[in-house]
Design a protein around this nucleic acid. Structure first.
Lengths: 329, 329
DNA sequence: TTCTGGAGTGTTACCGTTCTCATCCCGCTC
DNA sequence: GAGCGGGATGAGAACGGTAACACTCCAGAA
């Protein structure tokens, strides 16, 4: 920067003003400085800027180290929105969603001087840890379910479950079975709630649920149990991967889909339209979620101090395909 | 830091020595300083450290903004290895793998002062852009295929294709068809090469290939063409998602798998064991790839200047499941 | 005894910005 | 024509660390 100033024949301060687009610089001077910057291939040193302004233009993301579809997609949504806003994102992942690892991840981000943190936080342990973090850092959680006193951006899981369940009921099924995700995840719990509510409201029998992890193996295992029960004609799965396992279990048991059993998933992950048969599922826009999370964080960043949490809830929608149809009876 | 020094009754320099575990500090003094740090809840300001040492302990990742399974998993492998080495990772994604966006991403990372860059670089355009980046930054590419003069960590795609093809030939199939990925991706091309070589070596007919994107939609489209040809008894797909589409197309055409047609995929993504039928596929360890990439980068970081590229190639292995079997003939 | 060397500590400069305040010059008002 | 306000610029001090060097001990060798 000193070199630029010298070359342009001005003080370093004027160079700084040009960089920061300060209005009070004569146009001619600005041009001279810009030319000098170009010819020296100057780039401002962000570390120094950070030191002086205590603002790093870097955002931290606390992520969950596993390949679940949702978190991945949100990362990209956040990153591209952050880029547009002039921020870089740093990622700290945790191996499991318990207190200690999350605190460590936050600490790492804070040490590196991030301006704010977005937690991809499907379990409350994460936001709890965040609240206890000894820092006045602006934080936003994305995914999971609403957390008291913590700004959150999420999909309305219960609504999604209602849509799916109602869809199956509307097709004429007497009731709908549910293969749930891990119930200590609020998202899984909210989907159970939405499903149950809808059955209640329709006066339908509420069958017992089974639960397991978010993957096809769990879906397969639980699907085998359902497959043996001829009264099962409609199944709502907590996500698409589970649905994949369920489809296979039903198929192996000789139950045709959707002729004998209808199946609906949740997520609308990329290839679910190519399952056998193509999966009817609840679509959620993860990238949008990421963008909204970033917008909320930026907003809270500008706020004085005791920020207003003000949650954001995004509505999911049904993406009907071939796996759900009226019962054959 | 000044406060810590004052509280401990030493100079700030001694505090710095304690932080950096310099040996020449009396044990008693060190204790006093550590106690002061604890009681003031002191954390060193990395921006200042970066400014002084011109080393940020941050690594940059240039990623591809799409949910392909491989890149995702590599990100986690890199991040956890980086964490262990005391680095934080910052991610800059690009919307497409052309020159300009990659340069911009690199520029963003450089501005933020990363110490090195790992490019998740399936296409040569990325490494080309990186080589032209006006900076002596240490770079490593992961994924893709070998790039002249650029340190690369990758899976041996050709070997994987050979394994898959040979597996099908060994089962007794006269030849093997191939549904390729986009041929401007070196990975896709290498898989074609490995497949073709193996057929040549076995003296088998080399059928024409079809190509498309890496997803199930492409697989379905190409699978429909193959399904109509009764001479097709074995299909090697460039990845698992394509295989999913192919499976569905074959199924719809009434061809049983593996009785009529055997199918082998590539990647071994999480739920491929729950396709119908479970997919035989070539397994690649993306997380390991990420770890190796990081190790290579750190190694090159320590090197004087004109670094030794020294590529790393990881061997894939077959994960046989139900979708490949001897031909029924 | 005197010299030497290294362990332990302090002093000062410097990393590259931004911020605050001072300065200068100009045109305007009274 | 003196006073005044504001635009354009510069000077110097932060920001919070690390690096280089100087200094003080004190033990052991000459």
């Amino acid at each position: 920067m000193r070199d630029v100033a010298k070359l342009a024949g001005v003080s370093h301060q004027t160079v700084s003003r040009v960089i920061n687009e300060h209005p009070n610089v004569r146009a001619e001077t600005r041009e001279r400085v810009l030319a000098a910057m170009r010819s020296l291939n100057y780039r401002r040193n962000l570390a120094a800027r950070t030191l002086a302004t205590r603002e790093s233009r870097t955002l931290g993301i606390v992520g969950f180290e596993t390949t679940l579809f949702g978190p991945e997609s949100m990362l990209y949504g956040i990153e591209s929105a952050a880029r547009a806003a002039g921020y870089l994102v740093s990622v700290a992942t945790v191996r499991d969603l318990s207190h200690r690892p999350v605190l460590e991840a936050v600490d790492r981000l804070v040490q590196h001087g991030v301006d704010g943190i977005i937690a991809i936080a499907p379990k409350p342990a994460v936001t709890t840890a965040l609240t206890h973090a000894p820092t006045g850092m602006a934080c936003v959680a994305v995914g999971g379910d609403s957390q008291a006193g913590f700004p959150t951006v999420r999909v309305d899981n219960a609504a999604g479950a209602r849509i799916a369940t109602q869809h199956l009921l509307d097709l004429g099924h007497a009731t709908v079975h549910h293969v749930a995700g891990p119930l200590d995840w609020p998202e899984a719990q909210a989907r159970v709630d939405g499903w149950r509510e809808t059955l209640y409201a329709a006066g339908a029998v509420v069958p017992p649920i089974t639960t397991g992890w978010w993957d096809a193996a769990a879906g397969y295992e639980q699907g085998r149990k359902l497959a043996g029960d001829p009264s099962v004609t409609a199944v709502f799965c907590a996500n698409d991967r589970i649905a994949l396992g369920v489809l296979r279990a039903l198929h192996e048991a000789g139950r045709r889909i959707p002729d004998d059993v209808s199946v609906v998933g949740f997520d609308d992950m990329p290839d679910s339209g190519y399952f056998m048969p193509p999966l009817s599922t609840v679509h959620q826009d993860f990238a949008e979620l990421g963008r909204r999370a970033l917008a909320l964080l930026l907003h809270n960043l500008g706020l004085p101090d005791g920020d207003s949490p003000e949650d954001v809830v995004v509505a999911p929608r049904l993406n009907p395909r071939a796996s759900a149809a009226p019962p054959r009876d």
